[in-house]
Design a protein around this nucleic acid. Structure first.
Lengths: 194, 194
DNA sequence: TTCGTCATGTAATGGGTTACATGATTAC
DNA sequence: GTAATCATGTAACCCATTACATGACGAA
């Protein structure tokens, strides 16, 4: 999750860690916090993998080697940028509409980069997501009709609110899917018009 | 989170691990999965702490000591029950309306046991939760009005949907708070009627 | 000059998941 | 008899958080 967010943001423009953190937070709508304790180690890992490189804060024309020492003493902004491998990796993630793409943790990030994603992949992910949320809705509905009358007000209230939330999400996804389909027909004319 | 859920469910009735897992899942509306890899170690920890005890599956009149061997070979259902300390611990958690009670991870569980929670504690938690969600809403609103027009359709769509969700949650909480206040006035008459 | 925020990182720790290993019971 | 589901656990791992340590820069 973090990985794709970082790759995607650095794909737009190089930037330093502190700013990256703020952008990631904004990207996901400020839902979850992102601590430096997970950001910097992630950047380090990705540098070791060769996906990103770090600009030397002293001599800005130089790139820091992946195994560079932690820069004790005088430190400055370290600007990170995607390498060719990093760009490739990001493109790969963009094309991958596999099952995990529509799970809770991933979906938000995948969606955030939909503008750079292919229509068919977008549709696969949206439909997969909808199925996922519908499953949850059906489970919740079943449990609600089973337990109603037998449980206290608060349990009922919590389950009802949960059900309303997933219902809303299903409707939202359905609208997005419909509008994607309209767009797709408008673009490639005939095939898969079902 | 897990700890309170387990204590609360065992407070209703003794049960074995497998059933406990299903109940925890139902309790939180099936939102998150709960694997045995986190349930059983949690039960083990709680047994060591003295909050719960495990019934010997062979001689059901006996209680397994906390440091009992893992029962290789023939295994049967292990029924867990709260000890006196466990009941005390649960009561303590019920009374604690501290700041973490209204954070995302805890709120669901706290709410699930509201029927056993004091009105004043309920109100504290609900109001804390509302403040928390309002903060998020305001951050989201600010970010939305800042970026609108400058971002793509999908980013906008995601942020708008997020905003709608938190708006709905604030309204839900407000309704609950109002109805709690009505109840409280009905019960203790005058003080804090503001 | 001191406070707030910008800025970079590490170490310890925690809490969870997946994958694995094992066996009992029930329904077909 | 065999498949599904009930049932109990461990071990390896992953990813994130908290707390810590350090320092630069601009504004009051």
């Amino acid at each position: 999750m973090l990985e794709m967010a970082i790759l995607g943001l650095l794909n737009e423009a190089p930037m330093h860690g502190y700013e990256l953190r703020k952008r990631v937070l904004a990207l996901l709508g400020g839902f979850r916090a992102l601590s430096y304790g997970s950001l910097y180690p992630a950047l380090k890992r990705m540098r070791e993998q060769g996906w990103i490189c770090a600009q030397d804060p002293v001599d800005t024309s130089r790139v820091l080697p992946a195994d560079a020492p932690p820069l004790t003493g005088k430190r400055g902004k370290v600007v990170y940028a995607l390498t060719a491998e990093g760009k490739e990796r990001f493109q790969g993630l963009l094309t991958d509409g596999g099952p995990e793409a529509w799970e809770d943790e991933r979906f938000g990030v995948r969606f955030a980069f939909f503008a750079q994603t292919d229509v068919d992949v977008r549709l696969r992910i949206l439909e997969g997501r909808r199925r996922r949320v519908e499953e949850r809705r059906d489970g919740l509905r079943a449990s609600l009709s089973r337990t109603r009358e037998r449980v206290d007000r608060y349990t009922l209230e919590l389950q009802q609110h949960g059900l309303d939330s997933v219902d809303r999400e299903v409707r939202w996804l359905s609208e997005l899917i419909d509008s994607e389909k309209v767009d797709r027909v408008a673009v490639d004319g005939n095939e898969n018009t079902l």
